[in-house]
């Protein structure tokens, strides 16, 4: 419950504070958001599996975001940033889908 309230507060803050994203972070923010989403869905799945651990969640959240940003940064330095960020989004998308499928099985038993 507190978690959902936290999410709402974050969204509302993002909407109403109108933050300006620093120029240096702009290429990495979308990838970071997708990576964090992956971590969140992984956490929800773990919660339903009964193996949720907040330490694991925190570490996976940050490592996901950092690795995704790192890969994109590396890609930018190598001149293949666009392709690598596409690759990262595809991989994370597949993971999100499989996590959501597991959650769905728990929720709807289907």
């Amino acid at each position: 419950m507190i978690a959902i309230i936290g999410l709402l507060i974050g969204v509302l803050a993002g909407l109403f504070l109108e933050p300006t994203v620093p120029l240096a972070l702009q290429p990495y923010l979308p990838i970071a958001v997708v990576a964090a989403l992956d971590a969140v869905f992984g956490g929800v799945r773990a919660h339903f599996d009964g193996i949720f651990d907040d330490k694991v969640f925190v570490i996976s959240f940050f490592s996901n975001v950092l690795i995704a940003a790192l890969i994109v940064y590396l890609g930018d330095q190598l001149g293949v940033g666009g392709q690598l960020s596409t690759g990262v989004v595809v991989v994370l998308g597949i993971r999100i889908f499989s996590n959501v499928a597991a959650i769905r099985r728990h929720v709807f038993h289907a």
Binding site: A3, I4, G6, L7, G10, A13, A36, V40, F61
Partner: peptide, 13 residues
Amino acid sequence: VAVLLALLGFAAA
């Protein structure tokens, strides 16, 4: 978890 989710929501927004 709530703090992290708030961070995520903020960034996404």
